[in-house]
Design a protein around this nucleic acid. Structure first.
Lengths: 224, 224
DNA sequence: GTCTATAAAGGGATAGAC
DNA sequence: GTCTATCCCTTTATAGAC
């Protein structure tokens, strides 16, 4: 079915992530194991419910080793979240960066976005970050800046360019970009977050969702 | 400005809520105190972080009393969530129920929706339900059915009527309804969930958000 | 039904050896 | 850096008196 270890595959795309709240030695095999195990555990069980014992067990190290790499449970979680955001964003913004025509740019961006947020890892990440944000203030800010904000701003810049060119009429590009992504989300994201559907919408359904969003965004629903 | 105790005021609108996963005697003063205190505590601290000791303290009862009314911490949380959903939905659906013209219906529905989801109680409820859904399966389903689903379906029915009347062109009313609410959400909801902005958007900003969503939804952004 | 007191378990974090 | 062993605290849930 799905990729067995796929949910944590993206963690070591670039360098082993220099992302903690304080700087740490990037080169460490055990450190990577801890990050991988931590990501898995936090995403499956949530931050509070996850125990450092479990993380240690999955990483194949002792708890003391974890605490030699990360100051606290919160610091470990923060490092994981930052690493994930950096790994996941680029492919979404790509489409809008080279100036394709509106329909294509929106379709491509929307589909990439939908694919991302419906995949198991990001879904769990989103849920866990939201849950902890009120008791871990910098986490929310970091996540937003490194994730949703970057994506929205890339589309906003694209819309602003199309507006300047006279192709589209978008007086508030940032707001419209956020609203476009909101359309693509619809309830699909919420239903997955709530565990309503065991499986996410398939490729055909995603096409329908994105196509409908693009058409409405570009032309509206008023009968012509 | 806002109601000081408003975040927990809606809990006792109808009867004292006959909503637990199993049926319970509705008439109980202490039971109400427990529900109120539980709602407060879970929303502030999240499900895992909240302790039954804290709930007992705020309710002015002993822990043993709580366990005499609710089988477990999960059962208490479930009862709270169900009660909240029932109290908060009606005012949103009202606008679409009597068939106003599209612009007015969308504006009114969108604004009521935005006001609801940006207020402290629902915001915390949403966050906590999301966090617990994967480990508390029926909770997610109950919440969706009693909350988002009802709201979306009310608007979907309205859009379907307008489509039948030839006023709007909405071949997929349920999808479009979900997408309209997604537009209104934009990033405002996310930013509040993440604690990015200390205070929610004011009345003027909300007007801008809703107006932009309505205009785009009805007419699109393509230059005419 | 309601209380006090406590059982029973699990958690984050650390000491000290190597 | 890494391990084993453990401290110390909090938690859910319950026993037993009233």
């Amino acid at each position: 079915m799905h990729n067995k270890a796929g949910r944590i595959a993206s963690i070591e795309n670039d360098k082993p992530s220099l992302v903690g709240t304080e700087s740490e030695r990037p080169e460490s095999r055990k450190r990577d194991m801890i990050i991988r195990a931590g990501a898995e555990t936090f995403m499956e069980q949530g931050f509070e419910a996850a125990s450092m014992d479990e993380v240690a067990r999955r990483a194949g190290v002792s708890k003391a080793t974890i605490y030699s790499h990360f100051e606290s449970k919160h610091a470990l979680f923060g490092a994981i979240v930052n690493g994930r955001c950096q790994a996941m964003i680029p492919k979404i913004t790509a489409a809008a960066l080279d100036d394709q025509p509106p329909a294509e740019a929106l379709r491509s961006t929307g589909r990439s976005f939908l694919d991302l947020i419906l995949s198991p890892g990001p879904l769990s990440l989103y849920r866990t970050v939201l849950a902890e944000a009120p008791r871990f203030p910098e986490l929310g800010r970091n996540f937003y800046d490194a994730g949703p904000n970057l994506v929205a701003q890339a589309l906003a810049d694209y819309l602003a360019r199309q507006h300047a060119l006279g192709v589209l009429d978008v007086p508030t590009p940032r707001l419209s970009a956020e609203q476009f992504f909101g359309m693509v989300l619809g309830h699909a994201h919420l239903r997955m977050l709530l565990g309503i559907d065991g499986t996410p919408p398939g490729a055909d359904e995603r096409d329908r969702i994105v196509e409908r969003a693009v058409q409405t965004f570009l032309h509206g629903v008023t009968k012509r």
